[in-house]
């Protein structure tokens, strides 16, 4: 199984940043999500984050809200999320679940960690779980042998960065800007400073997400970060496509552009 550790070690050996792609389970359809994530891997994504669709995505902008709404309308449940992880992990990409905390809380932390590991998942990203509340989840994840990734933000104090980084295994997620998810015209200038501040507190890889949407931006971020995270831009390609085949083609095209970017 490919772990986050092997992914980042390999990217480092290749002297490039890792490419991380995000897609919610169940979008555009249950099987379509597996197909699209597979296309992302084939185009060059090293890591895939499978989003767990949640009714109240208060950190997400319109694009991800739209995709998640469709996934929920499709009847996507946690079993589908796990099945998606299983399908994507088979491609050889390190596969994570990104989720708000309440679905795990309700499902049961130990049960979720165990089932995710069983599906071949390597960890989770939990954007609304703070270090103060993360103890039980970190324990459950450690017991199941999966990684825990948390976020730092441009507003984080040194003390908070340290507290968050200390809770992370696998990598630290640096949110590039103050805002919700969604591609932007330019990557926030706050991102580089945040990555540097984070490095002062951890030896883990630091990946940058929020607002990255094209090859040029990926190249820019790859200049200072260990990984580049792209979500809304992939979703946008699928939302704008007239049919599934052209959606997959568009995803491949973007994936290739980004993969070239992280190698530039």
């Amino acid at each position: 199984m490919t772990t986050l550790q092997t992914v980042f070690a390999k990217a480092k050996a290749d002297e490039r940043a890792a490419l991380v792609g995000y897609l919610p389970a169940g979008f555009p359809t249950k099987d379509g999500a597996i197909a699209a994530a597979t296309a992302m891997v084939e185009a060059g994504c090293d890591v895939i984050e499978i989003g767990l669709p949640y009714s109240d995505p208060l950190m997400d902008g319109p694009t991800i809200q739209d995709a998640v709404h469709r996934a929920l309308t499709n009847g996507t449940r946690i079993a589908d999320v796990l099945r998606t992880v299983e399908g994507v992990a088979k491609t050889g990409a390190a596969t994570l679940v990104m989720t708000y905390w309440n679905p795990i809380d309700r499902y049961g932390a130990e049960r979720f960690a165990r089932d995710l590991a069983g599906a071949g998942g390597v960890g989770t990203i939990t954007p609304d779980l703070t270090p103060e509340e993360s103890g039980p989840w970190r324990q459950a994840s450690a017991d199941a042998g999966i990684d825990t990734v948390f976020l730092v933000a441009p507003s984080s104090t040194e003390e908070r960065i340290k507290a968050v980084a200390d809770c992370c295994t696998g990598f630290v997620y640096a949110a590039s800007l103050m805002g919700v998810t969604g591609a932007r015209d330019s990557v926030s200038s706050a991102a580089q400073g945040l990555v540097e501040r984070t490095r002062a507190h951890t030896d883990l890889p630091v990946c940058v997400g929020l607002g990255v949407g094209n090859g040029r931006q990926a190249a820019e971020v790859a200049g200072y970060a260990d990984g580049v995270i792209v979500g809304s831009a992939f979703i946008r390609r699928l939302l704008d496509a007239p049919d599934e085949a052209s959606g997959l083609a568009a995803v491949r095209e973007l994936g290739a552009e980004l993969a070239a970017g992280v190698r530039a």
């Binding site: 950190m59 954007p127 779980l129 703070t130 908070r160 949110a175």
Partner: peptide
Amino acid sequence: GGRYVPEALIPA
């Protein structure tokens, strides 16, 4: 109670 929010909001 507690806080279950994005880290970006913690300083505020």
